[in-house]
């Protein structure tokens, strides 16, 4: 028994060491973001006697590019998620509660559209967007991201709706609820937590999307992914500023991510892992 307990402590310590190692680059970025530029590139790095400062954050925020990109990120991720929800909620509801023999095939077909690699259609999308004046517009990116995330969202909501116990809805029907009342007074309140976390997960996916945003935006509609790409050179040599901008770009979304990690497993494995 004693030996088992000792074992467990060692394994727990190992787990903490491994988890800290995984998160280390982020923790390090966080620390570096408060160092003056000279300290940030000092070798070997120091943790004591550093003149901690908010200077990097001030610089990033003052230069203006960040604010516009952050706004673009919020608008693009938010609007594309809302648009996808508007399409996906009715579809998932119908497939979960009025399934037909074709529902299964339809779901798998939707999934297969997600598997189309974006590079395969880069050229036509680029030309369509160029001719339609959608290059470097928020609307253009929103449209692509909404469509790209639609299958994932339909799947997430479908598996979620399926878990609402059917007898509760039947009870409502016997209690005299109309279809609308059944939806608004029973199903929606029951499904709301799931809808919220699905929204958050799709929002984070939209926030982090870095193929279309890099290829189809330049300045006007550039979200944070594209803004961060501008640090690739030679600005990236300013480690303090890079770190501050990175933290500003990821902190809110990582925090949101923590809240929807449950949905993440079910959502991104399409119900194949529960």
């Amino acid at each position: 028994m004693k030996r088992g307990a000792a074992h467990r402590i060692v394994l727990t310590a190992l787990a903490w060491a491994a988890a800290l190692a995984v998160a280390f680059p982020l923790l390090w970025t966080f620390i570096t973001s408060f160092k003056p530029e000279l300290e940030a590139v000092a070798f070997p790095p120091r943790l004591t006697g550093v003149d901690w400062t908010l200077e990097n954050y001030r610089t990033v925020l003052d230069e203006g590019g960040y604010a516009r990109s952050a706004l673009n990120s919020v608008v693009i991720a938010g609007a594309s998620t809302l648009a996808a929800m508007a399409l996906a909620i009715p579809a998932a509801w119908a497939m979960a509660f009025a399934p037909t023999p074709r529902t299964r095939g339809l779901l798998l077909w939707m999934l297969s559209t997600k598997m189309l690699p974006p590079v395969g259609v880069l050229m036509p999308i680029y030309l369509i967007y160029r001719d339609a004046g959608l290059l470097d517009t928020r609307a253009g990116v929103i449209l692509l991201l909404a469509l790209g995330n639609l299958p994932v969202l339909v799947w997430m909501l479908y598996t979620h709706f399926r878990e609402v116990p059917g007898e509760v809805l039947e009870a409502a029907r016997l209690d005299g609820a109309s279809v609308v009342q059944e939806l608004t007074q029973v199903l929606l309140p029951l499904a709301l937590p799931g809808l919220a976390s699905a929204f958050l997960l799709i929002f984070t996916l939209g926030w982090n999307e870095a193929f279309w945003t890099l290829n189809l935006t330049s300045t006007e509609a550039a979200p944070l992914t594209a803004f961060m790409a501008t640090f690739s050179s030679p600005q990236g040599l300013f480690f303090g500023r890079l770190s501050a901008a990175s933290i500003l770009s990821i902190l809110p979304i990582v925090a949101i991510g923590w809240f929807c990690q449950r949905q993440l497993v079910r959502g991104l494995t399409f119900g194949a892992v529960k």
């Binding site: 116990p165 007898e167 509760v168 039947e170 009870a171 409502a172 016997l174 029973v186 029951l190």
Partner: peptide, 10 residues
């Protein structure tokens, strides 16, 4: 109707 699972509105 009284359901086997009770089907209460949670």
């Amino acid at each position: 109707m009284v359901f086997q699972s009770y089907a209460l509105y949670p």
